[in-house]
Design a protein around this nucleic acid. Structure first.
Lengths: 110, 110
DNA sequence: TTAATATATTGCAATATTACGATAAATATT
DNA sequence: AATATTTATCGTAATATTGCAATATATTAA
């Protein structure tokens, strides 16, 4: 089937998994790390930075943009990509709340 | 192709994406949340708790176990699953470090 | 206008993921 | 031993993901 049955889960569960999913590819992790590292707009040198073909990078950028984690502004013939810090913070809060479930836990049971 | 080119990325990038990937399905998120919530072993009532078929749950549990996020102890005819808190903490640290890349960032550029 | 440059989209092949019925394996109960 | 119970594995169908060549689109430069 390959089709996730989202209707049986809560909005939060689906939201967490969607964010996790988009971070679930090393190319997208690398893109985000690079955008943070240069701390400014990157105008398309991601194809050189990462070793994948231009259409592949473009596709990964599209997925990151769809989730709102990055934004792209057209600057002449190239596109200026950067982190959407506001949305990143929201994502981070949702993910952190989930990751921190262990702080309420008393002890291992088995 | 469907095949990720892991060899072009760093170990950390691959590790982050693997953790994110296993969290990238709402059923696995729900399983983890439930294991945290009951704060004790759960012996197979996950199938009732979540609405998916038994083999499907079993498969998701296998993936979580492979990444080390949960452990399962056989107790008679059932299996006692619970969070592997030690590994969860390690995972949380790796993911948090990545998610916190924004705190070094000065300002949005575009 | 024409050519050059940069990015997006399309189409497709290969592989991965999701889900579940059927069945196996392992232990408990009678 | 025979049966019941619980979980794992196998097999398979449907869908998703990844990657890239070819091509389209859009802007800039000549």
């Amino acid at each position: 089937m390959g089709l996730t049955k989202t209707e049986m889960f809560t909005d939060l569960q689906n939201e967490i998994s969607l964010f996790a999913k988009v971070l679930g590819h090393p190319a997208r992790v690398a893109i985000l790390q690079h955008l943070f590292k240069i701390d400014t707009c990157v105008c398309g040198d991601l194809v050189n930075e990462i070793g994948l073909a231009q259409p592949t990078i473009s596709q990964h950028l599209k997925e990151l943009k769809q989730l709102g984690l990055i934004k792209g502004n057209i600057e002449g013939t190239s596109v200026c990509y950067c982190i959407n810090t506001e949305n990143w913070t929201k994502m981070k809060e949702i993910m952190s709340q989930f990751l921190n479930l262990d702080i309420l836990k008393k002890e291992d049971c088995c």
